[in-house]
Design a protein around this nucleic acid. Structure first.
Lengths: 339, 339
DNA sequence: AGGCGGAATTTGAACGATCAAATTCCGTTG
DNA sequence: CAACGGAATTTGATCGTTCAAATTCCGCCT
């Protein structure tokens, strides 16, 4: 193994100069820099990351929790995010460490371990809930983190302190509903999750507002055009059938997820169905779905993390517009007709 | 931040004793051990992982490459593996680092970086190909690694040196075919990938041998009962239609993947279809599929890695049966009927 | 030619842990 | 009661890097 000393000796400079070539090239005279770089290449020197971390107390690594196991149909959004995050992280010289945790408290336990060893500079958290203990813990210690998903239902003051990236489900469902309207449909139902659910309620509003503002329905009328059911195929199937029985004129359904959409499709009521998340199921069966721009999400997350990490410990937080990003999803018409 | 010195001072012992309490408890007198542990808890001391790594040159971390982006329908096997690996890794005190690479050479580049910094002790590699440059590189440097998937087509001698965990596709397809036979089907077709393909050919043989050994077909007859097509729905659909036209008596189809199976189902030829991998698509559509025991795979991988890492640098390799595991997949009858 | 001052480079110290060797402790034994 | 010896504990050195301070270099001005 070659160390910084070997390089220094071979290049006829001191170890610190080698260090500077790598970390602050601008302070080294160009001629020297070239010479050192040549030696570095020739010897194949790579800095010892742990030694650097010990000294600098930073790791250039971010951590993200991975849920115990893929739950099946839709769970893959987070997996997709993981891919994109890893790729974008690399372009900024960051690494991604995975960890698993049984529950939020266990997760906090892991935060501690990872931070204590200078293993990790920042976290990406997902699935924040009301009164999430993780938020308080992280904020209290000034640990840089970004949430994928807005932290719903927090007092404005606290929510301001949190960095997040999210996808505007409201707009996504509006776009889906609008596309159905413009292709001549009118009596469009909605299949969603039971309230309260930050994400779910927002998607429902997207549909409701489009129906009332752009299709001439009244608030009262649209209430019977929607059903709520927990994520799952059989429940969705029943709900879709129920919807059609109540509204024989029903001519399309917008859903809060691909799972619900699949249920609606399997109900065989023969109207167009639009899902959410553009999961493998919608891709392969070919029904339209609102796709989250996961790659953009990853990009935004990484940019924010870089900003947060670079910030000195008592510099002020960057302004909100740099730390909170709401991205637009887009309706995708998958090639094939439903079977 | 509390260090080992703080603990030592507070407990009235030397730093080394504290270190021993954590790393070799058996050499510390029980009374002392208790006292030190109490202080550790009280102060919330956590060892600084980077300092330890610098000294010991090990990281308790393994790395796995994550492919650039989820390709859609089937890719999720590796994601599932990632989940399981992370969980099992934790039980053995290991961490999981992700990295991305554009191609095998780029991947080797990353191996170097990660090893140079004592960031990583071992790798999990996937998708090994004939003449894989990674194998040579890793073997040449005695870097511990485990391959998910047998390295196909290597000279026996070299192949012996490699540790791997794989799933016996041959048996899986045999089980699938046999189950169709036992439910009264006889003219069972096979949809697979073009040869040569280690995995694909193996699965095809599973079907062929079952047909000839257990269903009374001749080698010659079965050749027309199978079609090969690249992974994709439309190709599979055509192939399935072609199969039925050639064999009007066709009464079931076994496929090398869920994607192919979905194609066959969408061909509407109304015979039972069995897929492979039990992906979300087969789960949600409810067609049977051969499921890889991914959790067992992850467990086996971690056990092997632990063995390899613990091994001194010139200890002999553990015997093959500890380093090469072929696991059995199982046919899963998903609840629901195809739409 | 001597002195000045900023740029470039080098030197000393430290980050927190573990290894290896040295020392202390303490119960046994002659 | 002193010497012995194994167990328990402490001390000195080191892993590879970067920070901060000290030193050297070198062109330029008077």
């Amino acid at each position: 193994m070659t160390t910084i000393y070997d390089v220094a000796t071979a290049a006829g400079v001191s170890r610190q100069t080698v260090s500077n070539v790598l970390n602050s090239p601008e302070v080294v005279r160009p001629a020297t820099r070239e010479r050192v770089l040549a030696v570095i290449n020739q010897l194949g020197y790579r800095p010892h990351a742990s030694a650097r971390r010990l000294r600098t107390r930073t790791s250039s690594t971010l951590a993200i929790r991975i849920a115990p196991s893929g739950d099946g149909i839709s769970g893959s959004i987070l997996d997709t995010l993981l891919h994109s995050v890893t790729v974008h992280a690399r372009t900024r010289g960051l690494r991604v460490l995975l960890f698993s945790a049984a529950d939020p408290y266990d997760e906090i336990e892991q935060f501690q371990d990872l931070l204590a060893g200078s293993d990790v500079d920042a976290f990406i958290i997902t699935g924040t809930t009301h009164e999430d203990p993780r938020l308080e813990w992280l904020l209290g210690r000034h640990v840089p983190f970004v949430s994928f998903g807005r932290p719903w239902g927090l007092p404005a003051e606290e929510s301001q302190a949190i960095s997040w990236v999210d996808v505007d489900g409201y707009s996504g469902i509006r776009e889906a509903t609008r596309s159905l309207l413009s292709s001549g449909h009118h009596e469009i139902g909605f299949l969603g999750w039971p309230s309260p659910s930050g994400t779910g309620d927002e998607r429902r509003r997207g549909w409701r507002d489009t129906m009332t503002e752009e299709a001439g329905w009244t608030r009262a009328d649209v209430t019977t055009l929607q059903r709520a059911t927990t994520e799952g195929i059989s429940g969705a199937k029943e709900a879709a059938i129920g919807l059609q029985q109540a509204h024989p004129g029903l001519d399309a359904i917008v859903c809060a997820s691909d799972t619900l959409a699949l249920g609606a499709i399997l109900a065989d009521i023969d109207v167009p169905v639009i899902g959410f998340d553009s999961t493998p199921v919608s891709v392969s069966l070919g029904f339209p779905s609102v796709a989250q721009p996961i790659d953009e999400v990853a990009h935004a997350i990484i940019e924010i993390i870089v900003r947060l990490v670079e910030r000195g410990d008592d510099d002020p937080l960057p302004p909100e517009e740099f730390r909170q990003r709401l991205l637009l999803p887009h309706l995708i018409q998958h090639g094939q007709a439903p079977s």
